[in-house]
């Protein structure tokens, strides 16, 4: 009985143990800043200046906690409480430019990338060269439609048109340095990508986006499946050879079957 009580107490202790603490809007906004500005124009996501004039607070809270409900797939759901989101909104209101103030418009310039950077970026993406700080290669989770490279991972978004989708060089930089996605934060948070590597990846992703219509689709998609199947059959054959002389039934099986048949 005592064991049960202690167990229950322990379990409830763990269940209600949370590690969130009240933080001010400014520090919380740093994770939004990878994709959003306040009055600085569109980045990956929209400019958040004056967002409360466009949407109600309740709607924003529901949106931030689960963007998928609003058919938005680019933004990950944020693990934030209502109070934390309100703190962020207060910060946004305090930072929003006053009514009538002219906003700076960010001009997108034509970007030219060096082919050397493209090649280095490809090697980093694929993993042929490792990231200096030891982060995992991009290909583990992301795929790009680029025939010189093997098929990429399917866990996270396809990055073939990430360049145009997320606002060019600035957007890619925002994501790679701000790490707004929890899975990326856990992968690169302690192993950040260096400045040089960032430039190379940006160049590669732009190159992929520019060249996506020229890609041929070969049979490499199923290579991984085929290897697995071949290996599976090989192991079955090995099992057959190593253990086939094993005893496979009870001594009375024959007698039993004979009798069952005669009934």
């Amino acid at each position: 009985m005592r064991t049960k009580t202690i167990l229950t107490l322990l379990l409830f202790g763990f269940l209600f143990h949370t590690n969130s603490s009240a933080q001010d809007g400014e520090s919380l906004f740093s994770s939004c800043a990878a994709c959003h500005t306040i009055g600085g124009g569109k980045l990956v996501g929209p400019d958040l200046a004056g967002v409360l004039e466009r949407r109600s607070e309740d709607e924003i809270i529901r949106y931030v906690q689960n963007p998928a409900d609003f058919d938005v797939i680019m933004m990950p759901p944020q693990n934030l409480t209502n109070a934390e989101i309100k703190a962020i909104l207060n910060y946004i209101v305090s930072k929003s430019p006053a009514e009538g103030q002219v906003e700076e418009v960010v001009e997108v310039e034509e970007v030219v990338v060096a082919l050397d950077d493209v090649k280095s970026g490809e090697m980093l993406f694929e993993g042929t060269t490792r990231f200096e700080n030891g982060g995992p290669s991009c290909i583990a989770c992301h795929n790009v439609d680029y025939e010189q490279m093997m098929q990429g991972g399917l866990l996270a978004a396809d990055l073939t048109d990430v360049y145009s989708r997320s606002g060019g060089m600035v957007g890619i930089k925002g994501i790679l340095t701000g790490l707004p996605f929890p899975a990326m934060k856990s992968a690169y948070g302690n192993y950040p990508i260096t400045e040089d590597e960032l430039v190379q990846l940006q160049a590669f992703l732009k190159h992929v986006d520019d060249n996506k219509i020229y890609q041929h689709h070969g049979e490499k998609k199923t290579m991984f499946l085929h290897f697995g199947m071949i290996g599976f059959i090989t192991i079955l054959i090995l099992i057959f050879f190593l253990w086939f002389d094993k005893k496979k039934g009870g001594v009375k099986d024959d007698i039993y079957n004979r009798q069952i048949k005669s009934i």
Partner: peptide, 27 residues
Amino acid sequence: VIAFNGDPVRLIILESTAFMFGLLSLF
């Protein structure tokens, strides 16, 4: 494991091997 998978060839080898044992278990 991340270091081992750094090279794409090793990544494919590890993934196919694991997949093969997955199929074996499923079977």
